[in-house]
């Protein structure tokens, strides 16, 4: 190997000075994911021109997308740093960075902040579909259905495509319009240009169709193996329960709760898990905390269920009414509602 020392030296030189990329040879090769590819070409561009605020913003937004499809939360911190850099270079009128910030805030379930970033993005880039998308997501979660609908229609008219069609599907679903939701997802599938996008559409179509318990077991076992997020753990746990494996199911619920307690996260999810599988008082604390932040169909459902398991079904009913007011007919939501109504009879 000493023979190749000059080579080694040259390599080291390249590694250390020419580009940080050389230290990570994988980067050039894992091009099969278009998002990853995107991130890499932005990185290359920024190595040449680190002053390019727009490229930093796009890199940040790409990391938010990557976090979503790979479930690797390290992308969130990368997104955050890239967006901070972009805003440092161009604090005003930096629409791309506002979009990225908003997407990141949505991903972290800080919907009020996401709404603010979304509004700034729309001001800076009035004809940009992604800016509208940030706003749609935030307003939906904050419970502003009318606002969300307006932003979504604008998004659809600006750019009919995967991003707007999948959001339309969700809108239809929340309004109990399942056929239209399916239609929108099919159009999204037709427009999809990457495998990740197609996977998302197919997954949602299957969710809409409903899965047999075997299918659910298989799908969620796979998902939990990749990314043990509390939501997947709960779904997997429920499937295990139905399959007559309560101990294994319990382990999933415990893991989800443990994670949420230790590392924090979404109080809404925590409330629902605690209500079914943990401590009712804790569930109510979580649900009330989230309701204080946002009054949406989701928090209304969680609060109604937490009240119910705390034997306060009469109070629960008004929140359950709110949860289904738009027409949302999610099986879990209906299960909660029936139990509440049943206990009041």
């Amino acid at each position: 190997m000493w023979k190749s020392l000059p080579l080694l030296a040259a390599l080291l030189a390249v590694a250390a000075c020419a580009s940080p990329q050389a230290a990570t040879p994988a980067a050039q090769q894992s091009a099969s994911s278009s998002l990853q590819h995107n991130a890499e070409s932005l990185q290359a561009k920024l190595r040449r021109t680190p002053q390019d605020a727009a490229a930093w913003a796009q890199l940040g937004a790409t990391h938010v997308e990557l976090a979503r499809v790979t479930f690797d939360p390290q992308h969130y911190s990368r997104a955050e740093r890239a967006l901070t850099e972009s805003l440092r270079l161009k604090p005003e009128g930096n629409g791309d960075a506002f979009i990225g910030r908003g997407a990141l805030a949505n991903a972290k379930h800080d919907f009020a902040a996401a709404r603010d970033w979304g509004q700034r993005a729309v001001t800076a880039l009035p004809d940009n579909a992604s800016a509208q998308g940030v706003l749609v997501d935030a307003l939906t979660q904050l419970g502003d259905d009318a606002g969300a609908s307006v932003a979504l229609q604008r998004m659809l008219d600006l750019r009919p495509g995967v991003a707007s069609f999948t959001r339309a599907a969700y809108h239809f679903e929340l309004h109990g319009r399942v056929d239209e939701a399916r239609e929108a997802l099919n159009r999204a599938l037709e427009s999809a240009s990457s495998e990740a996008e197609r996977d998302f559409c197919r997954f949602q179509l299957d969710e809409l169709k409903g899965r047999t318990n075997e299918e659910a077991l298989e799908v969620y076992r796979g998902l939990v193996a990749k990314a043990p997020s509390p939501d997947y753990l709960v779904k997997y746990g429920k499937a295990l329960d139905k399959a007559g494996k309560p101990a294994e199911a319990r382990a999933q619920f415990d893991l989800a709760l443990q994670q949420l307690r230790a590392l924090g996260g979404d109080d809404l999810t925590a409330a629902l898990i605690a209500a079914d599988h943990g401590d009712p008082a804790e569930a109510l604390r979580f649900a009330e905390k989230e309701w204080a932040k946002r009054q949406s169909v989701f928090t209304a459902d969680a609060l109604s269920w937490a009240l119910h398991v705390n034997k306060r079904s009469a109070e629960a009913l008004q929140y359950s009414d709110k949860a289904v007011a738009l027409g949302w007919r999610d099986p879990e939501v209906l299960r909660h509602r029936e139990a509440i109504l049943g206990s009041l009879r």
């Binding site: 996977d199 809404l268 999810t269």
Partner: peptide, 17 residues
């Protein structure tokens, strides 16, 4: 890639598509 359906409570759909 993992189809992200982070819960019925918050569906993360592709944005920068």
């Amino acid at each position: 890639a993992i189809p992200a359906a982070q819960a019925s409570s918050h569906r993360e759909a592709p944005l920068i598509a």
